[in-house]
Nucleic acid binder design. Sequence first.
DNA 1: ATCGTAGCCTGGTAGC
DNA 2: TGCTACCAGGCTACGA
Length: 276
Amino acid sequence: MPELPEVEVVRRGLNDFVVGRRIADVTVMDVRSVRRHELGAANFIDQTTGRTVQAVRRRGKYLWLVLDDGSSILTHLGMSGQALIAKPQVPDPRHLRIRFTLDDGNELRFVDQRIFGGMFVGEGDPPAEISHIAPDPLDVAFDDTDFVQRLRAKRTGVKRAILDQKLVSGVGNIYADEALWRSRLHYARESNTLSKAKGLELIGHLREVMTEALAQGGTSFDALYVNVNGESGYFERSLAAYGREGEPCDRCGTPIVREPFAGRSSHFCPRCQRKR
DNA sequence: ATCGTAGCCTGGTAGC
DNA sequence: TGCTACCAGGCTACGA
């Protein structure tokens, strides 16, 4: 599934192919992919057709195409979304939901199997609609000290805290588990019991694991076909905790444990990552 | 105000 | 074999 590094790869690919392009035509194949556009699919088409894309930006896992009238096409890939650039003669993929025909003949295709993602028009740059989304660890504007202060002010488990997009964006289940493993922290450790130093270590590991994944993910994607299937690429081989239930911890050899957490799973080493 | 969770979705797979 | 149940995941709305 697309994580922050994959979304950044998508952003770079879109930047190469859609900036300066005029959107000549828009087709919405499945209205559920624009359900966050409150005025409906027809209005989404009206607001985007004829506009020229000026930039492609990202915060966390949100992408937005800046348009020439000051609005933006906000995009979230959810867990199965893809943004692909293709020639019209390339057959439509099975789960094509939205098609943008560009003035150079290319198509920007929004493909999404599970429809957790979607597109909608927002206002401004960054759009007001994502003003509640915190900077992500790869943002130069990210403030580590402020992050640690707010992390320690929360009264919840540390994993739940770093999955909170209002505290830090772009962190998903995979990177949360990996950064916690690197920091030797139990997922349910109360965030308000962390030292400042441990908080700084945690954000450092988050940034480190995302940077590594971006470097590796960046080599596994073709620019013309922006494949955002997280199952491919090199990063999966680098995982120390996520998806490794029963396999030995890279540090101490103890089998990695998986526990239910918030309707999904947490993977951790029961020896290296004790709660206290 | 803050925290925790139901619900949105599809396709693959486990279990019967 | 064909059916059902369940799982994966990010995010928002909403209840406590």
